[in-house]
Design a protein around this nucleic acid. Structure first.
Lengths: 155, 155
DNA sequence: CAAGCATATTTGCCTTGACAACTATCTGGT
DNA sequence: ACCAGATAGTTGTCAAGGCAAATATGCTTG
């Protein structure tokens, strides 16, 4: 059955592999999620969705922490926060212990929006992995995690 | 040993996983490759490197084919070609059978540059996968390929 | 062959993200 | 308490990529 798969969806190029492959998978995931968002009338791009998701999953945090979590530049984060705050999905509060920092938290509207988007996001990620067994999914995450660590080492 | 790994490089977040994980891995790979390029004095960004690599690996092709291969918009491709052509690494030739299309091919300088960059690129991708066994690397590519296919189906 | 529709490339316009400069705070050492 | 160096957030600037419009060809059908 592996063979069939290979035939049906021809390997774009037997050679170059890892770098390009990850890039393409990432691109497809982003496109799929943005298609979801559009289909549901949510006026969000992938990055804003990502910020929302992080806040929903992990809870309030600093702008810098959030920036690192979604792998975004500090300056870019400021602007995303501007937009999401303008739309009423989050709020900037002064940080309790550090007057330089902010505490970013979802508003009621933000929480509600996330509840609305959550399901289709799960469905999309499920669709992406539909041809992998539970064991394979676990391994995929493990391998990716280890690749990430290897790349980050040695700094 | 899996446990040690997990401890040394704490999982950024047990939950969200696949989407964010792939995004981060992709980001690190891009950064690593751009660091390579800078270290070798090559005046290329990741995208240009990617175009060069494709042309070197697969040979001359159409601008549109190249755009699809590196997952880039047609307009963006035109500009990348402008730059790479200006630097003398590639050449636009009229296509033999289709007067709308171009045949993009590396120049001597382009081939030479690729020969120069090739090694460190291999080394970087090797470094990324250094903690994976040969079998695991094969599986990782297979899983990613299958995820990619799943995402592209159903169009 | 003409008309209509699809495809290849280019260009203009706009948004996003990286990078650097700037201000306001922290923190540690003296 | 003071100073040097790090860190948080904001803003200006610029290059890169997506999208749509324009042009030039191809291709298919009547």
């Amino acid at each position: 059955m592996r063979v069939m798969n290979t035939n049906l969806c021809a390997s774009p190029d037997g050679r170059d592999s890892l770098g390009a492959l990850i890039g393409m998978v990432r691109g497809e995931i982003v496109r799929a999620i943005e298609a979801d968002l559009a289909a549901q009338g949510a006026d969000l791009k992938f990055t804003q969705f990502h910020v929302l998701k992080r806040l929903a999953n992990i809870g309030p945090m600093t702008a810098t922490e959030l920036a690192r979590a979604v792998d975004l530049d500090g300056g870019a984060m400021t602007r995303q926060l501007d937009q999401l705050e303008a739309k009423g999905y989050l709020r900037r509060t002064p940080h309790e212990q550090d007057r330089r920092a902010l505490r970013i938290e979802l508003t009621e509207a933000g929480v509600a929006l996330w509840r609305h988007l959550h399901e289709s996001n799960v469905a999309t990620l499920e669709r992406a992995q539909k041809d992998l067994s539970g064991d394979e999914r676990t391994k995929l995450l493990d391998y990716l995690q280890r690749v990430l660590c290897a790349l980050r080492e040695k700094n």
